[in-house]
Nucleic acid binder design. Structure first.
Lengths: 247, 247
DNA sequence: CGCCTAGTTGAACTTGGTCAATCGGAGTGG
DNA sequence: CCACTCCGATTGACCAAGTTCAACTAGGCG
């Protein structure tokens, strides 16, 4: 690992290099990307639908999510992002973004200029594939969510979502003893799974009653991962993780 | 348009160049891609979940769709593809595909070797962005489907899906007088929108009764596009079409 | 202490699912 | 040409998961 392993880009490099072996030079180039580190406020969209951004957002600490609204104002959360993710990398090639991106407070992100990214992969062509791949994995997660939200009952949907978060947070080293920090509201979980917040509350209680999870404040402790996977019909293939756990 | 405008790749070139102005040389390179043209049989998957393909599939005539199954065997259709689409372009960078790809009979596709695609965009770097962009647009459609299937009632879901198909088929010149050919079963429409086939039948009848559409065999005739868009809360931004209609 | 947000609970209600039977049209073999 | 078969479309009756509305509780913070 390069010398500056505590630079803002650490999670990103860790994540990208875990699935595509990079040379030290390429890793260093990623670390050296100019980045504007910004701690975000509550209720402040990072990107708004209709924007034409000239930069991308890298999650450094905490979570972000992308969402869309129907004309009637119902919110669907389309994806959650963990440290190391670049939620709006697609804006590099799609002029107008059609989604909104918001942080889950507290959250710190790094803004990277599109032109710096383009310079990066023109100089290191293999990094094109790495970044492209990053967008493809997010598309793969979208597909799994379509299956999850379209074909599974509410209980299974939540179980599946929790399995996914456990795996993705493990991959960047943010899980200990099957426990992770998840500072989202029940209403956000509901909008991610396409159920009402009242029902989300009941489903959470059911998962607790069945001994699959335990929550303390915003900590989620998975008590029985095997049962949780089974309940959600979870198969991690779609996450395209190589080994699954960061060192 | 290059001389061989009736080559198998015509729809693809038409589609890709409509959103990213290409030089004649780049268009010609796309036309010249080696391709194995295959008319498909009924009930024959093109790609199966778990495969590690060394080629991509370009839709030439008809439709294809990707789907996933839950462990209980329920099918969710994740995307529909029209001529010019490359449904499994992601396999270029994701080793194991996690989805299955199937044709809607009758259907003809062209298989393009991954190495030929790589050679193409190494020689014409701007085409990297074009292909990357293609995968990003599909991801954008996935997001809209998540919103559609998660937040809208069945009637609106179907209206939205029909609007999308009308726009995408228009973009490749396959719509005349607001009429297009859609050789899918009601059961497939149901699995795409996450409702039961019985209910899909009723929703279709409702759309017909309300005078929004008319069907004759597998032809769909949109009678009132404005009302259909309104019913589905349809906003075409996510399709990232430049002008929307092919010449 | 009071406010505000998120979480929790109960009860009535609705959308859409399930089951089961029937219809209809296209292809097939006699 | 006709009977047979098969698959998809259609219909009706009943059922259940999840929504909606409304009230109430609990925790964090100025």
């Amino acid at each position: 690992m390069p010398a500056n392993s505590s630079s803002p880009g650490t999670f990103m490099v860790r994540k990208l290099s875990s699935i595509f072996s990079l040379s030290d030079e390429e890793k260093q180039a990623l670390h050296d990307l100019p980045m504007q580190v910004v701690p975000l406020e509550r209720d402040q969209d990072i990107v708004r639908a209709g924007d034409q951004p000239s930069q991308c957002c890298l999650v450094l600490e905490g979570f972000t999510y992308v969402y869309k609204l129907t004309l009637e104002g119902q919110r669907q959360i389309l994806a959650l992002h963990v440290p190391g993710d670049i939620p709006d990398l697609q804006s590099l090639h799609l002029k107008v973004v059609d989604i909104s991106l918001a942080p889950i407070f507290p959250c710190t992100v790094g803004f990277i200029q599109h032109e710096d990214l383009r310079r990066l992969y023109e100089r290191y062509p293999r990094l094109t594939a790495v970044l492209w791949r990053e967008t493809l994995v997010h598309a793969s997660i979208h597909r799994e969510w379509l299956l999850n939200n379209g074909q599974r009952a509410a209980y299974a949907r939540l179980a599946h979502l929790l399995c996914e978060l456990l795996m993705r947070l493990s991959a960047v080293g943010l899980v200990e003893n099957d426990t992770f920090h998840l500072p989202v509201t029940q209403s956000e979980l509901a909008d991610a799974t396409g159920i009402s917040s009242v029902h989300m509350n009941r489903v959470l209680q059911a998962l607790r009653a069945d001994g699959l999870i335990e929550t303390q404040g915003k900590q989620v402790h998975v008590l029985d991962l095997e049962k949780l996977k089974q309940a959600g019909g979870f198969d991690p293939l779609y996450l395209q993780l190589e080994d699954g756990v960061a060192t």
